[in-house]
Design a binder for these strands. Structure first.
Lengths: 138, 138
DNA sequence: ATGGACCTTCCCATCATGGGAAGGTCAAGG
DNA sequence: CCTTGACCTTCCCATGATGGGAAGGTCCAT
């Protein structure tokens, strides 16, 4: 109800989204055009801060800006189904799990190579040998 | 010993590094300046292909170009110690594990939220509630 | 009125990669 | 010999999300 409005710096401090990113989100259309004072300063209402925190939280959960735009649309759509939201979330989880698997494979490969490397002052190193020769050489 | 030289397209096909990236690696100094024909075409020797495969493999293991430059230097340095290589590899593993941990935390959070979301035709959704209100609201 | 903290827009950089245009080169086939 | 198509060259631009910084305007407290 209150008509309190804050500047972009205060909005940044209150939401954890940098002023730079707030402008960027506006520029790219993720968020609507902010209100302005007569002198051109952006001003933010409590509702705006709410949206910024939403974006921040979604970003922390690894959603892309494209996905966040979709989530915002679902958030604002009163006739959305929870099934739609859940599907998006699970899609994203699958994507995260896929990326985790890739990194995990890299880490395991490197750990195996490192195990076989004595790590002393001599130059012989199975890690470089693998990089040089590839893992499937005879 | 053979003097076989191939064009950039053949080098790309033989190493799995795109022609675009081969030029980019040269431009940024990751790889040395390629030999040229009289008409300006780049030509690659077996040794060049070997280096390209090295870069490809390191890239597949998630090393950054900066790290790959270091690895190439170690590879070419006959007086390197295997300890130095192992240290780089384990540093990179630690970095991978850290990133895995971050993604894992995101995935787990979303999975917990999704579990609590019935995913039916109704609009009520704990996932959006979390995004809107944050996880530490009363 | 002045100074400092803030705001504005605009441009540039990152990292690794791809797209595409404009133009030169090469090999094969007519 | 000439055309055709596949290849090569350089150059510029774009991505996604973010930061840095310059040049200039605004606001508020002293």
């Amino acid at each position: 109800m209150s008509g309190r409005f804050v500047t972009i710096g205060e909005a940044a401090g209150a939401t954890g989204v940098s002023a730079k990113m707030i402008r960027y989100y506006e520029e790219t259309g993720l968020l609507g055009r902010a209100e302005r004072t007569a002198s051109g300063y952006r001003v933010y209402s409590e509702a705006d801060l709410h949206a910024l925190r939403f974006v921040r939280r979604a970003r922390d959960l690894g959603f892309s800006m494209r996905e966040i735009a979709d989530l915002l649309a679902l958030w604002h759509d009163r006739s959305r189904t929870s099934a739609a939201v859940k599907a998006m979330a699970l899609d994203h989880v699958a994507d995260l799990r896929r990326r985790i698997g890739e990194l995990e494979a890299m880490a395991r490969t490197l750990e195996h190579l490192a195990e076989r490397c004595c790590g002393d002052e001599r130059p012989d190193c199975p890690i470089l040998d693998d990089l040089a020769g590839g893992p499937r050489e005879p």
